[in-house]
Nucleic acid binder design. Structure first.
Lengths: 194, 194
DNA sequence: GATAAAAGTTAATCTAGTTTAACTTCATTT
DNA sequence: AAATGAAGTTAAACTAGATTAACTTTTATC
């Protein structure tokens, strides 16, 4: 178990003693998923929050006529879960599926509750992480309302250049809230403009 | 200073001793704003997070050609701020303006940082509040992509019946991401269907 | 290296929602 | 109670993006 990436990550927010680090890692489960496997399925209760060591996931909602709406992608050094399902321990609205073979550090609900008691600093860690995630989510809502599909695509490209290269176009279209055909049109427009 | 509504609110998440309560309230500033006054202005750094005792606010983004995009409304027992600006202490993306005379409990950045040190339970409180806000924000993104304007309006009406009655229609249209003219059309459709 | 399946492209047609503009209703001030 | 302005309505013309469908390119499989 290579603890480095996760320690580097949490050190951006809090500092733990050696004892705390050991306690923390004693409750983390390392797990590997294969490409296409599901970490969470819509309707199941989400059992874990997951830190990605390597790999890539998509979080999506599938509506009744089988249309897939992508809420987000996650890669190394970020989290993946259905947080709503996890915190309330009720059925998930979203699916989380691996787009590559993916290695995770998993926190189960009970383990995380115990850790919050044992290492109160972790409350701060997750408070700060969630604050940032919330702010990003609010900004995305406004962008979706106030910008055209082309502008949103350009922002996506500059904000998440790594993700753009790892994920098929039709999923990016879904993330942007447009059809794959329209994204294709936007891209051909953009090459002509150059 | 009537502490009851705020104490009832936080008791849903954490329990404080009398000493902790006293310390908490010693750092809360009660403040009244008049209708139309700004609590935060786009470009300024947001100095406070604010719990609403009475009144109503809107949070909105104003784009370069003066178009207003409403991120959200807040009423009694909820929070209002530009959280992104507050946590990073950088210029705000959003405006927060009172739609009614509004009474707030304000936490300044420094007071809140001190309180986190003095009452670690508050980290848990704000972690949980932010988790819920993030989950709601994610669900809104999906609804905006997967539902028609009419469906979104119907959900708004049932989810926030109190807000619908206190806020002008053109602001609700902005919140839903549509024009006031189109909301008007939706409403007339809905009355004809009955 | 042939074949099939998945991903991406192009173009015609269509529609949900926008824009513009004139009009009505309601609230506020004098 | 008249006058002004803000909020809401209606309808015609318009457009960003969806839908449908045929086609091409890439990737995976035998």
């Amino acid at each position: 178990m290579n603890k480095k990436p996760f320690l580097n990550y949490i050190n951006r927010y809090i500092h733990l003693t050696i004892e705390e680090e050991n306690l923390l890692f004693s409750k983390i489960i390392e797990r590997n998923y294969l490409k296409d496997q599901y970490i969470v399925q819509q309707g199941d209760t989400c059992k874990t929050v997951n830190f990605i060591i390597s790999g890539c996931t998509k979080t999506f909602y599938m509506n009744t006529d089988g249309q897939e709406h992508i809420v987000g992608f996650s890669i190394e050094d970020w989290w993946t879960s259905d947080l709503g399902s996890f915190i309330t321990q009720t059925p998930a609205d979203f699916n989380v599926q691996c787009l590559e073979n993916t290695k995770l550090f998993q926190f189960t609900y009970d383990n995380l509750e115990e850790l919050y008691e044992e290492i109160p600093k972790l409350e701060r860690l997750f408070r700060k992480i969630t604050e940032r995630a919330f702010v990003a989510s609010q900004k995305r809502i406004i962008r979706n309302f106030s910008l055209s599909a082309k502008e949103r695509y350009q922002i996506f490209k500059t904000t998440y250049p790594k993700i753009e290269q790892r994920v098929p176009q039709y999923m990016i279209a879904s993330y942007l809230g447009i059809t794959k055909e329209f994204l294709s049109k936007i891209k051909s427009q953009m090459t002509q403009e150059r």
